[in-house]
Design a binder for these strands. Structure first.
Lengths: 227, 227
DNA sequence: CAGGAAAAAATTTGATCATATTGTAGCTGC
DNA sequence: GCAGCTACAATATGATCAAATTTTTTCCTG
């Protein structure tokens, strides 16, 4: 069953196998998603070639991909920057996220094993710690990981893809909200989601997901209006 | 298709301002969207540099962008091809399209002017002609233009973007369906949509859009199962 | 001796880089 | 304040290297 090709050994052999443009993409994606880049901040090709130590071709490809993702925007004259959200954007995102991610939760409910649920709970416990510690970066990462892991069980790559796209768009702005309000006030309906999963109650899982989304996004909308 | 090099050409100007990678992207996008490329067909960088007469960097960028769009897929080992849809994919697309595009129709209803509706009706009349003529390419283009134009009045760029992304994904497969069944059997709820718009009935517009989508996609699902 | 499978060479394709060219923004001097 | 100049960043190409597929060769087996 297992091929002998030996592409990557189990420890850390898989590091340099990925092409550079993919690595650049993942690096930038993380930086954008987890708020290391501020909305409105310009992104230059040459700056990235210098700071990342790769040629410009991989950087160009990664940037194009991120523009297509909506994670970066092409500002008219050859300028690229991190997007600034309008309140209209946020309102559309609330609608889309609720429709798509609730459905992902619903579908995941039928597929998750008890071990999967335990894993989710473990992520959520670590998430709680980041909240009480005021660890914004940790919060952003683990919150995303929670949803990503949950949705991964839905076996719905197309819906998943749409959801990821939306996360990429509001990531930078979410960071700004945390910087403004701190992590204490952040919503967390994850306990409700987990309990719904345990009870195999797909409708409830969908509902709790919708609430989690709505609360978080409303908070973001408020912060953007006041900004 | 000719080269773009000619900068000192006569008085026209201002038409060739677009960078090459953008043009390559648009060209490929059209070819994929309107079914000039068959699902499963491999797409090579070098083949495109030859046939389009541009260097590889613009081609690479366009391909990355289209991969991010879901219009092309990265087949494991550095191979890129036009996606083949599974019936699971189609089912997810039906769900997503109905949720997103129905909402776009609903929102457009409040904004369209009588002139806008006339324009839509004009597109639909041309669309009918392509159906009776069996003009598959024309059908695909005008059908897309009808929806694109309608949704454009919704003032909802994020929802629009999600919808466009889905269209790019099922475009190639839609072509295959037409080739199989011909254009005669294709659904067209556009008359219902137009009449709902005239009556300012947003719910009805949304409903008719959902029916249009469902019928078309079901047809596609059937054709894919039998393929 | 024929057939086929494995190995090795060759071709094709992708990835990256260095460099030349072009367009845009910002500055200088008037 | 603006015309022209300068500097910098983006665009685009071709060359070069690496990887993978295909084809050819070779060797073993029946």
């Amino acid at each position: 069953m297992d091929l002998i090709k030996n592409k990557a050994s189990s420890t850390d052999g898989a590091r340099e196998k990925r092409p550079a443009h993919e690595q650049v993409y993942n690096t930038l994606r993380s930086q954008i998603m987890y708020g290391e880049l501020v909305p409105g901040q310009p992104v230059t090709i040459q700056g990235l070639t210098d700071s990342l130590g790769v040629g410009m071709t991989p950087v160009r490809e990664a940037i194009r991909r991120l523009i297509s993702d909506g994670a970066l925007v092409f500002q008219g004259n050859r300028r690229v920057s991190v997007p600034l959200l309008t309140d209209g954007d946020v309102e559309q995102m609330i609608y889309s996220r609720i429709k798509i991610e609730s459905e992902l939760s619903r579908r995941a409910t039928a597929n998750v094993t008890p071990q999967d649920i335990d894993h989710l709970e473990q992520i959520d416990q670590r998430l709680d710690r980041t909240i009480s510690d005021g660890d914004v970066s940790g919060y952003l990462r683990l919150n995303h990981r929670f949803h990503e892991t949950l949705y991964g069980h839905a076996n719905a790559p197309i819906l998943n893809d749409l959801a990821e796209r939306l996360w990429l768009r509001f990531g930078p702005s979410l960071r700004v909200v945390c910087g403004r309000f701190g992590t204490q006030s952040l919503p967390d309906r994850h306990k409700d989601i987990i309990s719904a999963l345990r009870n195999q109650d797909a409708d409830l899982a969908a509902k709790a997901t919708a609430q989690d989304i709505e609360q978080g996004m409303e908070l973001m909308a408020d912060a953007l209006v006041n900004a």
